[in-house]
């Protein structure tokens, strides 16, 4: 980082925060503050939805995931376009016609107050905890890379978001997201192109594909059926469909984005374009990871990508052993570079025999590299007890900080901040909307003027932001807490989706049956989490099915009871 990078980083951050605050000034009534006066065109709805879903970890982790594991993560998103189509047909016209502020408000018109409050409570639980991690995860990586204090980094990101979300509400969130996502995608593509242009021997895009393919990284589609494994086409289409139906249809962080659309058509088109663009966008981000992987076939990769941690380990008695392993790694790299060049030569000559020979030899070299890397991780774990030796989140950012020219480093760091801010802003805004509309205005203070509710929403936004930052500083002490929050969506989403699916499609089920079914389903899911080894992705399906089936049975029994009583 030099002065140009710092200037670019802070100018970008200041412009975005200033723009959001200025553009959304004067949101005095509750319609303006919580729905942005329903003024968004479809393209802004689409950008808002995409910016909300893509958190900083998406842009840091996904290239690292492709680097280590290939492109197969893409399959996880195949259910998303299907969910967009279903929600455009069902949820969007319903929410618009009922003029709701939150998704849960609809549940009271369909069922009753207790079901609405239960769903709102589930949402506040899952989103309130995860907003802390949305801030914490990038803050951890940024603080490591920049040498900042982790808690100060958390407060810095949280405060930036708070400035414009508190002052401008939903409108500020959506207005800033269109620029944030533009900066994010531009920065990512520039980083990918940099990796590509630094490849030797005029390697073409197709050759980069082939090279990655020969090394097993282009594992885009797996046709085997196993719902407990996230990475096959059926998990993506079925498990992903359930997950994205609940995320986009029943999570206020997303529902709040398309409720701000000008009309049913604008909201629908926003969702549908998200369905068109999301998979290609993830493909691009994963492919950037592949380009970094190909780049490191010809340039020396660090043996461990979290440089700060390995440097700490070198301050201990384990330093000699780590240095020895590093020099082994350097030797192996030279062999691999030679083989990668042989492989490119063979691909150009279309010499199948030589391709096969090079591929085999690279496989052997990769195995010894992997063994050296795991030995280094063991040494680091021994040197610093409790250290996190997973370094895939650091692959991309370390590449950026090492190989990108000054100026672009500042831009890419701004990208990480933007991604963290755009997701956090939507989440805080949704938490405040739900707290105000579904809890405060409905059950605590039902009669007051608009000014009162706008002020209350602002304070709830501040409250949730402070809660998120406090939770992040606790999470810093507890690794297993972070893992719990990362799957907390799976714990609540199935039940919430079951409630909403019953509300949309199963007119037979009434309020008491759905309420009891939802509580039983949630208890079963919590039991599964603590006492079984069922894959988390299946929780969504199990929870949803229990709510629907049990709701049916309970309603049938209730109807029988009423019939008997009336005889």
């Amino acid at each position: 980082m030099n002065s140009i990078d710092w200037i670019i980083l802070f100018t970008t951050l200041a412009l975005i925060v200033g723009y959001g605050t200025w553009q959304s000034r004067g949101s005095k009534n509750i319609d303006g503050y919580l729905l942005g006066n329903k003024s968004l065109p479809w393209w802004n709805v689409c950008l808002s939805i995409m910016a909300t879903q893509a958190s900083a970890i998406t842009f840091l982790s996904t290239p690292g995931q492709a680097y280590e594991d290939g492109m197969r993560f893409l399959q996880f998103y195949f259910g998303l376009p299907l969910a967009m189509v279903i929600l455009s047909i069902t949820a969007v016209p319903l929410y618009h016609r009922l003029k709701v502020y939150t998704a849960y408000e609809y549940l009271e018109t369909r069922f009753d107050l207790k079901t609405r409050s239960l769903a709102a409570f589930f949402f506040l639980m899952l989103r309130g905890l995860s907003v802390g991690i949305t801030i914490y995860a990038p803050a951890l990586i940024l603080s490591t890379m920049l040498g900042w204090n982790i808690n100060l980094t958390t407060v810095f990101i949280g405060s930036l978001v708070m400035i414009y979300t508190v002052s401008g509400g939903t409108k500020a969130v959506s207005m800033t997201q269109k620029y944030q996502l533009t900066i994010i995608m531009a920065g990512m593509i520039i980083a990918g192109l940099t990796a590509f242009y630094k490849l030797p021997n005029d390697i073409t895009f197709t050759e980069a594909f082939q090279l990655a393919g020969e090394m097993g990284k282009m594992n885009l589609i797996n046709l085997s059926f196993d719902l407990s494994d996230r990475y096959n086409i059926w998990s993506g289409l079925i498990g992903g469909l359930f997950l994205f139906l609940s995320y986009f249809g029943a999570d206020q962080s997303q529902v709040g984005r398309y409720l701000g659309g000008k009309s049913v058509t604008e909201s629908r088109l926003g969702l549908l374009f998200n369905g068109l663009l999301k998979v290609p966008m993830q493909f691009i981000i994963l492919y950037i990871g592949i380009l970094v992987f190909v780049f490191y076939q010809f340039h020396q990769a660090p043996v461990f990508h979290n440089q700060s941690l390995i440097n700490q380990a070198k301050q201990t008695e384990y330093a000699d052993r780590i240095t020895l392993l590093e020099s082994d790694y350097d030797k192996v790299f030279l062999e691999r570079k030679q083989e990668a060049e042989n492989l490119i030569g063979a691909i150009r000559k279309e010499d199948a025999k030589q391709i096969e020979a090079s591929r085999k030899s690279i496989e052997e070299i990769q195995a010894s590299e992997k063994s050296i890397r795991s030995q280094v991780k063991e040494q680091i774990a021994a040197a610093i007890p409790g250290a996190n030796t997973l370094d895939k989140d650091y692959v991309f950012i370390t590449f950026v900080m090492t190989y990108l020219p000054h100026g672009l480093i500042g831009l890419l760091l701004a990208v990480v901040f933007m991604a963290a801010m755009s997701s956090t802003a939507s989440e805080l805004n949704a938490l405040a909307s739900t707290t105000t509309v579904d809890i405060y205005k409905r059950s605590i203070k039902p009669i007051a003027d608009d000014y009162h509710y706008v002020t209350a929403s602002k304070w709830f936004t501040v409250g949730w932001a402070v809660f998120g930052m406090l939770f992040a500083s606790i999470a810093n002490q507890a690794e297993n807490l972070i893992q719990f929050v990362n799957i907390i969506g799976s714990i609540f989403y199935g039940t919430i989706l079951g409630i909403f699916l019953s509300a949309f499609y199963l007119k037979y089920i009434k309020s008491n049956a759905i309420f009891i079914a939802a509580i039983v389903a949630e208890a079963v899911i919590v039991y599964c989490y603590f006492f079984t080894k069922i894959a988390f992705l299946l929780y969504n399906i199990i929870g949803c099915l229990i709510v629907v089936v049990l709701g049916f049975v309970l309603q049938y029994l209730e109807n029988q009871r009423i019939k008997k009583a009336s005889r």
Partner: peptide
């Protein structure tokens, strides 16, 4: 808006076929 729904589904289907082609021909 039926055409938009079909477009989204068609684009997904085309992408899956393209990715299937890539993963079989580059592996």
């Amino acid at each position: 808006w039926g055409s938009w729904y079909w477009l989204v589904m068609a684009v997904l289907a085309i992408q899956i076929m393209l990715y299937l082609f890539i993963s079989t021909s580059f592996q």
